[in-house]
Simulated assay, not measured.
Amino acid sequence: MEMHRKKRIEILLEAPAQKRLTDLLDRLDVTGYTVSPVLGGKGHHGAWSREGLPSAAGAMVSVAIVVAEERIDEVLEPVFELVRRHIGIVTVSDVMVIRGDRF
């Protein structure tokens, strides 16, 4: 089976910024992304949970994107510019996909 090398960008950020991020990804012609709620975790400032939050104000989401290696800077730079103004984390990893024409 033929595999294709791509880059996976995962963005963890405050839920209220999600729409700004997905609108940006649409403008950048990213072919797809997945948004998932983040239930809790532990970081630099200790453990946290969205349990009991009355609104999305303290909630976090994770947005995953797979892009061609040659597009990584084109996508990553504006994404980081948006995320750096919020609570969030951006990670990049190497992935292999089967249907390379989708990215």
Rank of each mutant, 00 (worst) to 15 (best):
R84P: 03
S49C: 02
E81V: 00
A64W: 10
V35Y: 05
L76G: 07
D26S: 14
I65V: 15
R27Y: 08
S62L: 15
L82Q: 12
H45I: 03
Q18D: 08
D101R: 12
G32C: 07
A15S: 07
V61F: 02
R5M: 07
R71P: 05
R102Q: 03
R99L: 00
P37G: 05
S62R: 15
G58L: 06
R5Y: 06
E81K: 11
D73A: 15
G41A: 03
L53S: 14
G46F: 04
K6W: 00
V92Y: 03
V95N: 09
V95G: 08
G40D: 01
L13D: 01
L21D: 05
I9E: 09
S36T: 13
M1C: 08
E69L: 15
R99M: 00
G32E: 06
R85K: 09
T91P: 04
M60K: 15
I98H: 13
E81P: 02
E77R: 12
P54L: 04
I89V: 09
I89M: 07
D23Q: 14
M60G: 06
M60A: 11
M3T: 05
E69D: 15
K7E: 03
V67A: 10
I87G: 11
V95D: 07
V66P: 11
T22E: 05
T34G: 08
S62M: 15
V92N: 04
R20T: 02
R85F: 01
V30T: 07
M96Q: 15
E51R: 12
V30Q: 08
H44P: 00
V38N: 07
E77I: 08
V79K: 13
M96G: 11
Y33I: 07
K19C: 05
L13E: 01
Q18F: 04
V95R: 10
P78E: 04
D73N: 14
L82V: 11
G40P: 03
R99E: 00
I89A: 02
F103K: 07
K42Y: 01
L24A: 02
E74R: 14
V63H: 12
S55M: 04
T31W: 01
V67R: 11
I11G: 04
R85Y: 01
D73G: 13
L24N: 03
R102I: 00
D101A: 12
S93P: 06
I87S: 10
L12C: 03
V90P: 09
W48A: 00
A15N: 03
I89L: 12
D23W: 08
W48L: 00
E10P: 06
V97K: 09
Y33T: 08
L28K: 06
K7T: 03
G43R: 02
T22V: 13
G32Y: 06
G41D: 02
A47P: 05
H45Q: 11
L28I: 04
S62C: 15
V95K: 12
R8M: 14
E10I: 06
K19H: 11
E77L: 09
F80T: 09
L76K: 09
L53E: 13
G58N: 07
E69W: 08
E77C: 02
